[in-house]
Amino acid sequence: MLTRSIGEISMTVLTSNTIEIRSGDDVVRVRQEVRSRAVESGFSLVDQTKIVTAASEIARNTLDYGEGGTLLIERLEEVGRRGVRLTFEDQGPGISDIERALTDGYTSGGGLGLGLGGAKRLANEFHIQSQPGKGTRVTIIRWK
């Protein structure tokens, strides 16, 4: 068990595992894994569906625009609440204009452009770091 201090709140990571995102099959596996972790954390059906959907959106971005990468799934515990944290990392081309990437309707692929912005709305916490040419890291947390 690992205890980290972020700011003043101490957060415990109960379990963690990593999934490779290299193909469409992996995106399906991401959904199943995230679902299991959310169930273990006692999420309601609606909360499970929200985080699985958010995971599906970002995993597809990692695959399509980030040339594949990894997902770290962690189950968190904090005073009085439980959550799931997902960290997606890729070494792809990166995003030059993050603001724009988060805008609904913006897409560099062929999608509806709801991926990142939609995932942000489905999560309680959302962080994105990206460096052109180096890659992108997206972290989301959903609390129970």
């Binding site: 059906l45 609606v46 499970q48 569906t49 929200k50 959907t53 959106e57 609904d104 509806l112 709801l114 912005g117 939609g118 709305r121 489905l122």
Partner: peptide, 13 residues
């Protein structure tokens, strides 16, 4: 399903 519908609306679809 209800949970799917709620999520889709939140997603913006």
């Amino acid at each position: 399903r209800p949970a799917v519908a709620i999520t889709l609306v939140e997603l913006g679809l």
